[in-house]
Amino acid sequence: MPSRKIVLRFPSQIVDKPLIYHLVKDYELMVNVLKANVNPFKEGFMVVELSGENDKYEQGLSFLREQGVRIDHLSENIVRNIERCTHCGACTDICPSGALFISRPSMEVIFDDEKCVVCGVCLKTCPVKAIEVNFNGKQ
């Protein structure tokens, strides 16, 4: 069963509708909410991981669009804020993919985003919060 991460944005008047319930009940999709910011007075925002049969998935998305939900495919990427990074190195042995590493002998910390698998471990490990995640939804 394929699983995909998507970003949902919905206008304030529909935030209280049980959308997730319908995805599960009517379209047999498994829903994993990764991030949510739902405020009844504002536009809602949710990052979810959906898994289910391809046709059900497409039908589920159509249902959401009919309800007025804007859907973006999630392109998460990790960026290092070079201004904030102190090159301490604390992230380098925690990163499982070798995307964060020390260049020797200068001891500078390098971030190679080609190697990054977006596991997110460095987000909490970096003591000065120099690692940031971009949830740039793209259509």
Partner: peptide, 11 residues
Amino acid sequence: VSTAPLSSYVK
């Protein structure tokens, strides 16, 4: 064992 510093040699 792999090592990592907490103090920045660069800085």
